[in-house]
């Protein structure tokens, strides 16, 4: 590798870090926007735990001591998904207010424009994920897979943020409009509710069960839940990390292609 290439990569790394730091600082300054993403999933978990205690006795429901153990993956994914589109919203805001054009005019590489914001969203998601798991542990949830499973669970949630963030960036680049990116939130919200997040698919019926079983969120939640309830399994680890990683590769690649086209067209 030539010295020029190494210098270029180093510069891109520095630029990515600078933009990631900017994203994290922006979130930190608007904690009021972050809090609902933590408070609401926790409230939902607390309510469901106290209202679904009879439900865990239904035949077909996984063996759990409390509904709290069952609902942890749902609360985790719900919490991180609240801010998942932020990487796209930020990019759209930068396009709207002209900051993106100023960055483009500067000698900044293309990839950091996307990766910096995604990196920031991932840092915030890691903090949120760790906090949610810590609170559940404090309230008595036991994770059968042990500490390594906790790392996998949080990593899976962070990868999901990367996947959703990539999609948000595609929309931001295509529309340059914050509202359009924010419109993906109901989609994310619905995908969580129409999955095995709050109830096992074995207890669902009809077309809803088919939708829930075909929903990629279910493919992420089910292995995470098995790591919590049943214990460590390499196949579950592979599925919990592999599914969001595969979606991330698709959405981030789409974002890179969309950015190339936008820059090429102007």
């Amino acid at each position: 590798m030539s010295t020029g290439t190494i210098t270029g990569l180093r510069l891109a790394g520095v630029q990515t870090l600078a933009l990631a730091r900017r994203s994290v600082v922006s979130e930190w300054r608007q904690l009021g926007n972050v809090m609902p993403g933590i408070v609401f999933p926790l409230l939902l978990a607390a309510v469901y735990t106290h209202q679904f205690e009879r439900v865990i006795l239904l035949p077909g429901f996984p063996v759990v001591d409390s509904f709290l153990d069952f609902v942890l993956p749902a609360s985790l994914l719900q919490s991180v998904s609240f801010g998942a589109t932020e990487a796209g919203t930020e990019l759209a805001r930068d396009i709207e207010n002209g900051f993106f054009d100023r960055l483009r005019a500067s000698p900044c590489a293309r990839l950091p424009l996307l990766l910096g914001r995604l990196g920031g969203a991932m840092v915030v998601a890691t903090a949120k994920g760790a906090l949610i798991v810590a609170i559940f542990l404090a309230f008595g949830t036991e994770i059968a897979g042990g500490p390594a499973a906790i790392l996998v669970i949080v990593a899976a949630a962070v990868l999901l943020v990367l996947a959703i963030g990539g999609l948000g960036q595609v929309l931001a680049i295509l529309t340059g409009n914050q509202e359009a990116v924010n419109a993906t939130f109901p989609l994310v919200f619905t995908s969580i509710f129409m999955s095995s997040a709050f109830f096992p698919t074995t207890l669902m019926s009809g077309w809803f069960r088919q939708v829930a079983e075909a929903n990629p969120v279910t493919w992420i939640i089910d292995p995470i839940r098995r790591l919590i309830l049943e214990g460590w399994s390499w196949s579950d680890v592979g599925q919990a990390l592999g599914v969001p990683l595969a979606i991330s590769v698709v959405t981030v690649t789409m974002a890179v292609v969309a950015l190339d086209r936008r820059l090429g067209a102007s």
Binding site: V55, L58, F198, F199, S205, F208
Partner: peptide, 10 residues
């Protein structure tokens, strides 16, 4: 749609 679908077995 979500609540009736997910919680139907209630």
């Amino acid at each position: 749609v979500s609540f009736t679908g997910a919680f139907g077995s209630l």
